[in-house]
Design a protein around this nucleic acid. Sequence first.
DNA 1: TCAGACATGATACCTCGTCTCAGTGAGACA
DNA 2: TGTCTCACTGAGACGAGGTATCATGTCTGA
Lengths: 145, 145
Amino acid sequence: MSDLEAVSLRLEARGYRVTPPRRAVIAAVLQQAGHFSVEDLLHRCRGAGRATVFRTIRLLTELGVVCRVLLDDGSLHYRLSHRPQHHHHLVCTGCGKVQDLDDCAVSDLVRELSGSSGYEIEGHWLEFYGHCSACRSEVLAGVSS
Amino acid sequence: MSDLEAVSLRLEARGYRVTPPRRAVIAAVLQQAGHFSVEDLLHRCRGAGRATVFRTIRLLTELGVVCRVLLDDGSLHYRLSHRPQHHHHLVCTGCGKVQDLDDCAVSDLVRELSGSSGYEIEGHWLEFYGHCSACRSEVLAGVSS
DNA sequence: TCAGACATGATACCTCGTCTCAGTGAGACA
DNA sequence: TGTCTCACTGAGACGAGGTATCATGTCTGA
């Protein structure tokens, strides 16, 4: 079963119809290698309207098919989520590559914080920014030349 | 020395002029108890123009006088920073109260991640969301009544 | 005094996202 | 088969939040 079919089935299981514009958006999302903005999708899905693309992305976010990535300049991008469960991102500020971090090491901190602060902590947002090994070696090569 | 004077001195030390509109924005920021949007400041500084308020907030962010707070609905607010150094926030989604977390417990995780991922990690963004003790007791009172 | 740098407010503009609304089409049902 | 309902659609208006531009004002140092 292709990814497109799998996502379509998940939509149908929730009672949503899988229409041609939605298929176009899902296909465009599945083609994206890294993170992308809604504007990128709008360019790829010329047939689908602006509102439809936004609506479909919101649907896919609810389904856990895509997840939101906060870049270090504050802009919000999306990314195909290979992990429907809670996870974090490691974003390369050089090439834009994003890596998933599946073990949430903050959960211990959350427990500790719940005790000390009196808050009932329901969620958190954690993103790491840095340079991947490829970008680091490029920078070093640039300096030495 | 008042807070207003202290911030003014920091601006001057960086070579910026302390003009009446800037003083008005700084005073408005210092009066804010919790987090605020630029729109809130615009209401409080009727004399200063929209662009000036945005420019001054950007300046104050650079100086570390205010810091950005990402709310759980994705909107960006600002907050008077009592800790110029790196810190995190604990945001109450009920009343909007924000608490600073000064010990960055992610630094161990950053070191560990640098080794395992090959990334040179330069920054991270961490916000916690939950309900403060006051909001929790309100909810409980509402349920029991 | 004067030139140049800096700061200003007004306003146009941009980006990103939501809302509204009339039209469309798929599916249920008589 | 016809009709009815309702989810879904695209177009476009709208709003929030922020930036760019520009003429003008003000400060500073020579």
